[in-house]
Design a protein around this nucleic acid. Sequence first.
DNA 1: CATATTCCTGTTAAGGTTATCAGAAGATGT
DNA 2: ACATCTTCTGATAACCTTAACAGGAATATG
Lengths: 350, 350
Amino acid sequence: MSKPPKRHVTLTDIAAAAGVAPMTVSRVLNGSGYVSAETREKVLAALRKMNYRPNGLARALKRQRTETVGLVLGDIANPFAAELSRGVREVLAARGYNLFICVSEQSAKEDLAAFDSLLDHRVDGLIVATRASKLGNDRLAEIVEAGTPVVAIGRDFRHPQADLVTADHLRGGYEAAQHLISLGHRRIGFIGVSLTSGLWLRRFQGYLEALREHGLPVEEELVAGGGASAEQPGYATEEMGYEGMRQLLALREPPTAVFARNDFAAFGAMNAIKRAGLRIPQDIAIVGYDDVPLASHTSPPLTTVRQPTREQGRLAAELLLRRIESREPVAREERIFACELVVRESTVGK
Amino acid sequence: MSKPPKRHVTLTDIAAAAGVAPMTVSRVLNGSGYVSAETREKVLAALRKMNYRPNGLARALKRQRTETVGLVLGDIANPFAAELSRGVREVLAARGYNLFICVSEQSAKEDLAAFDSLLDHRVDGLIVATRASKLGNDRLAEIVEAGTPVVAIGRDFRHPQADLVTADHLRGGYEAAQHLISLGHRRIGFIGVSLTSGLWLRRFQGYLEALREHGLPVEEELVAGGGASAEQPGYATEEMGYEGMRQLLALREPPTAVFARNDFAAFGAMNAIKRAGLRIPQDIAIVGYDDVPLASHTSPPLTTVRQPTREQGRLAAELLLRRIESREPVAREERIFACELVVRESTVGK
DNA sequence: CATATTCCTGTTAAGGTTATCAGAAGATGT
DNA sequence: ACATCTTCTGATAACCTTAACAGGAATATG
């Protein structure tokens, strides 16, 4: 009972079975043009019988659009990416578009491969949420100039014909640090990047700005990368946070508060603090970033900065569709969402 | 300086620019057939100048293959899905295939939409890692029978022409419970499903089996769904674990140990235990499932069951490619990976 | 020197769909 | 009765690429 790899049923097969021209079947399928009730019934009968699936390739080739959007993520494993893609999907699904996700695993080269792969399949537009790179941005500029709509999310890509959606992480980082300062902390650590190579990280810049503004010195020893993985661009891990915190705890004069690059790093740091037998926040206060679901369920619950992630995805999708569906050139849009400090007990213990 | 939506550069454009036939350009691009060095140079020059990108739709339409594989995930937000897709990607990338991911958000209907969307784009094969449903399995059977290679991961879909990759969660669940029993526990709770509707969950069956085998009664009150979200099929959340544990703690006679459906539920449970002022594992021992990275960094570190997630993804990809690239029918393969109990301090405290 | 072989290039058709045009049949208006 | 319009269906070509074939030129073989 071995099945030879069957050919797909084509629209022409249906036409033959129903005794009509292919074009008529096409009209029935798309509900366009005139078809008599009688003919329609014949075609529908044939369709039901033969289990036909339209060939999207051929259709897209002819129509010059695929009704599919590509989303490029740097890393599929983090809550930010997940939430973002949900937002994107919501909007696309409602408007009848499909979403294909490509993951670049944080490599600029894979980024290019993902762009190419999606473009070769002629997606109607691209949403890019990977870390910026010279290589990637150059290619993106080419893509935009070749006429494919592109929207960047939280990625430093500015182009007169592409939209940008992001959150104000400079401000978010500033407020997190400011919060700790206002609680009286003077030695405030940062976990997740190193001082020398972390300036691309907006929330880190915000931290530096807050310190500067309050006349606090920026001490290199208080900025803990968290080991070898620190320079990797992805979402910081709890491992990174754990290692970073251990570095800080090993100082002659450890910080009294730390700001972690994201919640996962903060979780790792919290565990390091507890293992060292110290209390949160009495001995060391801690702030995370992102407000992932887990953040409100740790003990103590984590003070963190919430960014409207799903909204960013939704808006990006809407901006993209606007470009896709507009005939004439569209004015550039850059939207920066505000972040919100969520104060919990990891800084103002009960 | 408004740009009209440019047409893509086609192979024919290149041919015209280089003064050769389209076929010759095709030969240069694909490195197939004979092309003189001189002609090749002309073509390459034109290619460089005109920024050409092959039209994958047309190519795929002609070649009848896309070198693209579709992966359907139920939920992008969980570590299992992330790790799985990494494994799949690794293998595909090495063999020159692209990966498109579709997310069904745990709905059987969306599942079908994802299948259709990928099939309409004529992916060469499908890897399905969503929860089984009657609707979905019926459709998958049709797909397989229509000739598209399909591999299921951890999904109850059996078909003579489709492969199945999974891990032995029955055994995994059994060992987790067995571990707690061997530590002397007699009242062992389960968090993450309800007794009445949780039987689809293999690890839960393993738990029941272990109890039965040791003559322990299965008490309904010890099986805590964790609120309304419990019946949702996705990855259990820490919220679910938190709520579930609170239910168990409210019993007249709470369990002395709990087994959580996955690590995230376990984290939530741990936090509920700590908030109640109890100690882990002295008052309540806890076991999770999956061994996500965070599990070794909680305090105390979590005893859990490790499943070889990435390997499952890799194997699924390999099985799929085997089917895609073989002309003749391929024998069905069902591979069940063993799970491994990882004992940490949440059960055998230091 | 005739014949076979290798190298190179072009022509044609096809993959499955749909836009466009053309034409037939029936309905409506004057 | 004739022009006009609406409704229906089909033929043709095109979207862009490549497989298959064909043929010409150059080189090798007997």
